[in-house]
Amino acid sequence: MSAVLELRAVDHVYPDGSAGLRDCSMALGRGRRHGLLGANGAGKTTVLQHLNGLLRPTAGQLLLDGQAFDYGRAGLVELRRRVGLVFQNPERQLFSAQVEEDVSFGPLNLGLDDATVRERVAAALDAVGLRGHARRAVHHLSFGQKKRVCIAGVLAMEPEVLLLDEPMAGLDAPMQAELAALLDRLAARGVTVLLSTHDVDFAFRWADDIHVMAAGRCVASGPAAQLAAQTEVLRAAGQHPPLALTLHAELVKRGVLPPGPAPRSTDLLLEALRALPVLEYPGEINV
C-alpha cells in the first residue's frame, strides 16, 4: 500500500504560541477510506489544513507521493488541485449567490476553459445529487444541501484525495447515511477519502483505516477493526470503544453470539441477533 500523502513528525505552533500539533506522523494509503478520530480541540482540523498546504509544519515534513513536498507556488497549486478540502461550516465556504456559480469557483481557478468547467460542474452536481438545483440560490437551500454544494465545489476540481472536516456534524441520521453512501461511491472510484469525526461508532462503521488524535498528537493509526480493539489507546484519547464491538464482546462472552470478528455497526449486530432463533420462555405466556 503506497501512501499518497504523509505527515512525518510534524509539529505546528500557531502564531499565538499555542501548539496545534506535536510530533504527528500519519500516512494516507491510496484509495482507502480514512477516519480521523479525536475530541474537539485534538488537532483534527490542523492536520487537515496541513494536508492541503494551508498550514505549514513548524517542524517535520509533508510528503506527497513519498516525496518531500515543495511549498513553492507551483507546488501549492498542484497540491490543492490534487487534495480537496471541505470545511465544516457551509456558510463559511460558499461565496456565490448561485449553486453552479459556486461550484465553478475551483475549476475556474484551475484555469480550465469554459466548456470543461461546465462539464465538471454538471458532473460534480450529479455526484452529490443536486443536478436539478444548479440554478438555485444558495441561501434557499437546506443545511444538508449546502453541505453537498460544498462537496461538489471540491469534487469539481477532481481531486485524488478528498478531506472533509466533521462532515457529519449537524446532519440528521438519514442525511448522514446519504452522505456516507456518496463518500463510499467516491472511494469506489479510487478517490482517497479522509474525514474527521469525534464519533467513534461512525468511524468504526465507515472507515477502512482509523487515525486517532489527542491533544495535538497522532496517537495511533491502523485498520479500523484492529484499532478499535485497542481499548487502552482509545481511552487515552478520551474515546469509548465502539459500541458494536463492546456489545459483541459481551454477547460472545455470554454465549449469545458465536465468537468471531465483531460486526462494524450496531445494525449488523442487530442482524446477527435477529438471525438467532427466538426462545419461548414463561414470561411471554402471560402477555
Partner: peptide
C-alpha cells in the same frame, strides 16, 4: 475562515 476556504480552492 472565508479566505482559508477560498485558498483551499486556489482562490
Amino acid at each position: 475562515e472565508g479566505v482559508t476556504a477560498q485558498s483551499a480552492r486556489l482562490g
